[in-house]
Amino acid sequence: MIPVPVPVILSFCAAIFFIGLAGVLIRRNILVVIMSIELMLNAVNLTLVTFSAALDHPHGQMAVFFIIVVAAVESAVGLGLVIALFRTMRTVDTDQIQLLKG
């Protein structure tokens, strides 16, 4: 099996990262936005693993574990916030959430 070259993987990671970022920017549903953020974090994870493998250094993989945990926590909190928001606002559309401005 020919190993995929590192730059290709990295580009792929970057692509995923920016797709996530684009999702944050474009999608109007907060749940999808949260998923996009997860996507960004996972792109980072992939990057780290790639570097870890390329440099033959375990630090990167170790970091990934932390990030997975944190991402999970973050999602949990995010979902909690979304529920609270839905209770009062009856919507999860970001365009509807513009009380605070100016």
């Binding site: 944050v24 920017l25 474009i26 109007r28 970001t94 365009d95 959430i97 513009q98 009380l99 605070l100 401005k101 100016g102």
Partner: peptide, 12 residues
């Protein structure tokens, strides 16, 4: 202030 229109995604 007018830029600060409350839209999260504009901020982003």
């Amino acid at each position: 202030r007018s830029l600060q229109n409350g839209s999260t995604q504009l901020y982003a």
